[in-house]
Design a binder for these strands. Structure first.
Length: 549
RNA sequence: GCGCCUGUAGCUCAGGGGAUAGAGCAUUUGCCUUCUAAGCAAGUGGCCGGGGGUUCGAAUCCCUCCAGGCGCGCCA
């Protein structure tokens, strides 16, 4: 149950019964800044005061008398107009026991049951290795997919392979140049030479596979074969990097699969909607209709479709595959998002079906200085370098520690594997300490009870213990928000808070005490709950829960 | 010039219109014969970029200015 909505609904009922006209969406229920102010609060009396020309306190008192919610213990109207709500102890106990029974079920809002979702992310051009910049997309998309699965969605993770673009053509030309060099052929330098060590390396692999057979072929055909080979190799490398990053894609969708009449069909639909025009030999999307400063090319004058055209067709295909929700994770440098959205709305995409998440650039810092990167001149740090340097857990955690919309500063000095200042260790250490407590209990022959009872819960009355129970009781609300906002960083942030709650409890409350078995058992249950919660959240963001550190 | 994003403690950043704006790092001071001190407790530190507006109430919404990042191709 989502308490906030439930309280809002109750307030709406009372207000409506009293004939004080106020829409449900104007009824704000919030979490107070301090625990003395209760578990939830509303300022609805302040909104009503002016309307009804009455004192806020009078209204607050009148509303408070009517509140009938079994999980609310006390309702306190305050002179300043606030109404504070306090949970019953049973509610904390029930929440906690649900967490122990099935943590995923406890945290889920079940909104995705029976629905299909697709998260498309990374989708990097297969013309070079994954970098720390496009690598940011991986944990973001993966965690969003995990969140959707938690809410009950059947969720596919998809990587769109742009294998029809001119960049793929250019990389093939560059590789073929190095291939020919290996036979001392004095080849013509391609117009646009791709930088990076991996180009000559691909040429070597190409030679290993084909020997000199490509030289004997007609050049256009040879380059086509080179392209197919290079794309295959690059995708293999990216797959490997992503698996090492604990990101697994269900589908690798090739753009070329849309080129069998599907693009034309999509274009024709847009034409039927009067959204295209022909000019200068090219075919255009009429984006000026939507306030764009110029129209966008869909089919070039040479007949080759643009990336935008391909992406429109690709998204039409997603819709036709019957997904209830599609999430796209975009880099901030993607400039065609708006034209894409205009076209998709025209094709019948509802905004509730398609959500986009954009993420900003990554800046790397080493030895206190920024490491400048530029993909166009081949000077960048690969995702593989990053994983080798700091590891998967640290990378994922740091990538997910900031809002997507925020530029990310990735400090390699702090995130080196064994540095105790590393933020991920703080959280993992909390989990490890739980394991330590369990080991201690086992060595003293004290077992953790299977189920919670009221008697056990009532023994947990220290502030640090109640803080944890209260925090956990609000977790379903929190996950619901994080999922709705498609904001994985919220999970990472909250993991830190839970770890703090736990570490405080650890210092204040000795768990294993042979002279007080009932209390020991109650606290062992609390530890079990913390461990369960941490592990569930670690799984969501894709990091390990270590038994020992 | 246009579009998107950002501006909050010395640094890196959280803050879905609400009460006294928070955390980590840095710094200062305490705490290990007891479940891992990779920890805890406390202290220092803020005209929330400037200015207007909406509101009972603004870090949050709107306008404007300033500063930074990214993007503005018949590239992807």
């Amino acid at each position: 149950m989502l308490v906030r909505k439930n309280i809002a609904g109750e307030l709406y009922r009372i207000i409506t019964e009293k004939g004080w006209d106020l829409p449900l969406n104007k009824i704000q229920v919030e979490q107070p800044p301090r625990i003395e102010m209760g578990d939830f609060a509303t300022t609805i009396s302040l909104v009503l005061a002016r309307k009804l020309k009455r004192k806020p306190l009078d209204i607050a008192e009148e509303i408070s008398k009517e509140i009938k919610l079994d999980y609310i213990d006390t309702v306190t109207p305050l002179p300043n107009g606030y109404i504070n709500f306090f949970f019953t102890k049973d509610f904390l106990s029930d929440s906690f026991s649900e967490l122990l029974k099935n943590s995923k079920d406890f945290l889920s809002n079940h909104s995705g049951i029976g629905k299909k979702a697709l998260v498309e992310f990374v989708s990097a051009n297969p013309t070079g290795p994954l970098t720390v910049a496009n690598g940011r997309s991986a944990p973001i998309g993966d965690t969003i997919a995990n969140l959707l699965e938690l809410q009950g969605y059947t969720c596919d993770r998809e990587f769109f392979i742009n294998n029809m673009g001119s960049k793929a053509q250019k990389i093939a030309a560059s590789v073929f140049y190095f291939y020919e060099l290996q036979y001392d052929l004095n080849p013509e330098t391609p117009e646009e030479m791709y930088p990076g060590d991996y180009i000559p390396e691909l040429a070597k692999k190409l030679k290993d596979k084909f020997n000199n057979s490509l030289i004997l072929e007609e050049k256009a055909k040879a380059i086509e074969e080179t392209k197919t080979f290079c794309l295959h190799e690059m995708i293999k490398e990216m797959k490997q990097d992503l698996e090492n990053f604990h990101v697994h894609f269900d589908n690798w969708f090739e753009e070329s699969s849309l080129h069998d009449g599907y693009l034309e069909e999509t274009y024709n639909i847009l034409t039927e909607k009067n959204l295209t025009l022909e000019e200068d030999g090219a075919k255009w999307l009429r984006t000026t209709t939507f306030g764009d400063k110029k129209n966008r090319v869909l089919i070039r004058s040479n007949g080759i479709p643009t990336y935008l055209m391909g992406d429109i067709a690709y998204h039409r295909n997603k819709l036709e595959r019957g997904y209830d929700l599609c999430v796209d994770v975009w880099g901030a440098d993607q400039s065609h998002v708006k034209p894409l959205m205009w076209a998709l709305n025209a094709l019948g995409f509802k905004s509730s079906q398609l959500k986009t998440v954009t993420f900003q650039l990554v800046h790397l810092f080493k030895d206190g200085k920024e490491v400048k990167m530029s993909k166009s001149d081949g000077n960048y740090i690969t995702l593989r370098n990053l994983l080798e340097s700091v590891g998967t857990d640290v990378s994922r955690f740091v990538y997910l520690s900031r809002s997507n919309e925020q530029h990310l500063n990735f400090d390699l000095d702090i995130t080196k594997n064994r540095d105790p200042k590393n933020p991920v260790f703080y959280a993992q250490y909390a989990y490890t300490r739980c394991q330590g407590i369990k080991r201690e209990a086992e060595s003293k022959k004290v077992s953790t009870p299977e189920l919670i009872s009221d008697i056990e819960l009532s023994l947990l009355n220290q502030p640090s213990e109640l803080q944890i129970l209260r925090h956990f009781s609000l977790m379903p609300e929190f996950i619901d928000r994080a999922c709705f906002a498609l904001a994985p960083h919220m999970i990472t942030q909250d993991i830190q808070l839970i770890a703090t709650d736990f570490h405080t409890f650890y210092e204040k409350c000795r768990v294993v005490d042979e002279n007080n078995i009932p209390l020991t058992k109650a606290r062992l249950l609390l530890v079990k709950g913390i461990e369960t919660m941490l592990k569930t959240l670690f799984n969501l963001i894709g990091i390990n829960a270590p038994e020992k550190m």
